[in-house]
Amino acid sequence: MKRIVVTGYGIKAPGIEDRQRFKDVLDQGLCTLEVVSGIGPNETDLVCGIIHNEYKRINGRNYKYYPRIARMAIAAADEAVKMSGIELKEGLRVSVIMGTSVGGLSEIEQYAVYSNNGQYDKFPLIGAGAGNPHSLSSSVAYHIGANGLVFTLSTGCTAGLDSIMMAKVLLESGQADVCIVGGSDAPISTGCIYSFAKLGALSKDLDIHTAGSPFSMDKEGFVLSEGAAVLVLERETDALERDTAIYGSIDNIYSNNDGQSIFASDLTGETMSKALKMTVGDYLPTYINSQALGLQANDTVEYIAYTNNFEDHSIPITSIKGQIGHAFGASGVMQTIASLISIEYDFIPPTVKTTGYGFGDLPILQETKYCDVNQVVVTSHGYGGNNTCMLLSKYLQ
């Protein structure tokens, strides 16, 4: 089987504009979240992860009227392609696959004011673009000049990792030469906030240093965050032929679904345990980069999957959600980039904010650990029932 490798990546996250800043945030255990006034139910305040850059102009092009998720993704893709040094020349089959959970919901809500009031004359001409989730991937394809296979996946929080899985299939089967993959979401909108507040899923804590505490049964609720993350994936042979830097290899990736109602998930953790088992096999990774985000049910599933696969509790586990919040469909690729950085610079980022209460036998890393990092497992699951795990390795020729 052809090895699939990462030759570039880009990230746009709260307080993070490039990979150097992301490295510093991870290494130092920094929190980039903030209190946003009046956006919660009954105009309450919420801790959120906000990206303040609007990305209206990128490389001289005007993207003012593009959906927010598309603008963030274009900026991240631009960074990833530049890092890879790849020339998107004629004949090179470049595929774009992007994942999102809520799509252009924020714009749809804005434009609904006009449609609900029958104000046809004020409804924007660009409304169709915002309402089409595929605008995300087609926007990235336009910006980088790709006209190969272009897909948008909307599988909830696993959408970013699922895009990597699909790209791996296309590259291994020879249907694409380069895949630009990732995820982008901007869930800080009234509908999204109200929906998850109704479920009791959002953190009500207004201290950024404690809100959204992974692996903490004495806390409850996660922090909504915006974000976009993009990878450049190629076959190893092609990357070597053009003599470019390789930052890691995608060894394995596996996905399944809980097969339950849209209002439920498999709280036994059995389907997530299988996804992790099928991903890891007999390997012993350096650590687990967990999706744990501060929801007791969600984090308990992570605990069960870990325990079912690593009974001796010898593999450290960590979550970066306490630092940057949870960006839905972009989160898995954000975790992937965090893992690539830890592989390159030999450290494991800490799980900030965790109390560990209720997870006492789980080897949660609470301080940065400097060590050789050779393999990382990235886990992701969420609303809709998908469970996706990936095994990422340091590249050794």
Results as ranks from 00 to 15, higher is better:
8 G>L: 11
11 I>R: 03
11 I>Y: 02
12 K>P: 01
12 K>F: 04
18 D>Q: 05
19 R>D: 04
20 Q>N: 14
21 R>D: 15
22 F>E: 08
23 K>Y: 14
24 D>E: 15
28 Q>C: 13
36 V>T: 07
42 N>V: 09
43 E>Y: 14
43 E>F: 14
45 D>E: 02
46 L>M: 10
50 I>W: 00
52 H>T: 13
55 Y>C: 08
63 Y>M: 03
63 Y>K: 00
66 Y>H: 12
79 E>I: 13
80 A>W: 15
83 M>R: 11
102 V>P: 02
107 E>Q: 09
108 I>Q: 03
109 E>R: 03
112 A>E: 05
114 Y>N: 09
114 Y>R: 02
119 Q>K: 07
120 Y>A: 06
121 D>Y: 11
125 L>Y: 04
126 I>P: 00
128 A>Q: 01
138 S>D: 06
146 A>F: 14
147 N>Q: 05
152 T>F: 05
153 L>A: 10
154 S>Q: 10
157 C>W: 06
158 T>P: 09
159 A>R: 12
163 S>L: 06
186 A>R: 03
190 T>S: 15
194 Y>E: 14
196 F>V: 07
204 K>N: 08
215 F>P: 12
219 K>R: 15
221 G>C: 10
222 F>Q: 10
227 G>N: 14
230 V>W: 08
239 A>C: 01
240 L>S: 03
244 T>W: 00
250 I>Q: 07
259 G>Y: 00
261 S>C: 07
273 S>E: 08
277 K>C: 10
281 G>K: 09
284 L>Y: 01
298 N>Y: 12
300 T>C: 10
300 T>D: 03
302 E>I: 02
304 I>S: 00
305 A>K: 07
307 T>C: 14
312 D>S: 13
312 D>M: 05
315 I>E: 05
318 T>Y: 02
318 T>V: 06
320 I>E: 13
321 K>S: 12
326 H>Y: 04
330 A>M: 02
331 S>F: 05
333 V>E: 01
338 A>Y: 07
341 I>M: 06
342 S>E: 02
346 D>W: 02
348 I>D: 09
350 P>A: 06
351 T>C: 11
351 T>D: 05
351 T>V: 10
352 V>G: 01
357 Y>F: 08
363 P>D: 11
367 E>A: 06
368 T>F: 01
368 T>C: 15
368 T>S: 14
369 K>H: 11
371 C>G: 01
372 D>R: 03
375 Q>P: 01
394 K>G: 01
